[in-house]
Design a protein around this nucleic acid. Sequence first.
DNA 1: CCTATTTGTCTATTGTTCTAGACAACCGCA
DNA 2: TGCGGTTGTCTAGAACAATAGACAAATAGG
Lengths: 247, 247
Amino acid sequence: MTVPLQRRSGIALWRQVADGIRQTLLPHLTPGDQLPPETALAGRFGVNRHTVRAAVAALEKEGILRAEQGRGTFLASRRRLRYPIGRRTRFSEGLGDQTLIRRGRLLDAGVEPAGPDVARALCLEAGAPVERLETVSSADDVAVSRAISWFDAKRFGGIAARYGDTGSITRALAAFGVPDYTRKTTMITAVHAEADDLQHLSLSPGAIILLTRSINIDPDAIPIQYAETRFAADRMEFLIGDDAGMP
Amino acid sequence: MTVPLQRRSGIALWRQVADGIRQTLLPHLTPGDQLPPETALAGRFGVNRHTVRAAVAALEKEGILRAEQGRGTFLASRRRLRYPIGRRTRFSEGLGDQTLIRRGRLLDAGVEPAGPDVARALCLEAGAPVERLETVSSADDVAVSRAISWFDAKRFGGIAARYGDTGSITRALAAFGVPDYTRKTTMITAVHAEADDLQHLSLSPGAIILLTRSINIDPDAIPIQYAETRFAADRMEFLIGDDAGMP
DNA sequence: CCTATTTGTCTATTGTTCTAGACAACCGCA
DNA sequence: TGCGGTTGTCTAGAACAATAGACAAATAGG
């Protein structure tokens, strides 16, 4: 029993076991590898086999494990994607050769008056019309983040349609005569997943969301986009600086 | 009922209520303000008053709330600290005027052979001797992060003692003739708190840890410090870039 | 074909969490 | 002093989580 679990802590044992498997077992495996049998895991974590089964079922629903009757349980998952954050932060380009397919899907869009946060970020009057885009980004057909972006409706009216066509903020902005843009600010924090996160990112309750709030500016240093993006923390890590020498 | 809670999710309701209070109620209050009475909170979250009481008790144990019989429940706490990450990232200086007292405490130290990750980060041979420092950093007497740092033992032998004297990495390095250093790399991800985190950072189970792995280099671009730092996510947020216009 | 191993399903029991209600203790105020 | 509003404590039962054991179903290997 390497990991002492906390009972009557408000976190169900099966959830602690699931997190334990994620953090202590999976890093030593490569996709396709077999996990120890349920009885062995039960012994290692000091719980009943049924509790382990509940944990495995949760990880299976997240697409991390794959249990096959008679054969065993196997790691089905990729590692965390490494997402560089810097002056030229772009989802499609940032992931480099880590994935084959990157795609953004438009969930919802609309024009609304800017709230105080959005107005301040975009240097607009409070209540000025802004266009809101709700999107989900996927890598290799696995959803990794969802974002709400706001653009000045006066300058970028109809950007939602452009995004729907191209699936890329970069290309949608290009259609509005913004050939290049840079990242002015990124704030990062972490929260627990909400109900919407569970749905759109296929997470199970208690999962962690890395939450970023960011401002992009055009070459004239005019703010053009304010975004709040929610990343599935077990599929993504952020890189600031260069990763030479990083594990 | 503004917040729909997730039942049979492996996360106890009282814990979800506690997180809900932290995230949706506290940001609108300033220290000393009174919270709605327990019956009102129970109505808003759609749970029994006793469940709310369990949540408040947990937040009270973390020092965030203060309940007084006959009077009410009050906010006792500060907001998230904003921690800038850039080329000149330093704990003591970074928090600026957000706090009065910043202090680092040495938990443990020792010399050990470098593991593969540490060796790569510090550009040493695997197994070369490195000095390991385990520290806890506090702001205004509240622990906000704990770190494990590694230094080349050949160049920085005895740095643990220097840190113990000064409580500051910057001053400890200065004693070894490193007047200045810069941040080469920062990686950020998020995990659930482990047992040690709960103890040293006074968290309750299920809390979120913002985990950074960073490399500092001296003016000659030689790596001098590799550190893995665990921040209490509800007390800290990271800033990359500048925060003009940020809420 | 047989056996050992592994996951899948079922029942029963125990312990923890959540709900429900009632009442005590305390505070501030008229 | 009395009253309304608040937190603190207790009891009992319902809902859920965890344990224990038994056995079925699928797989791999001899």
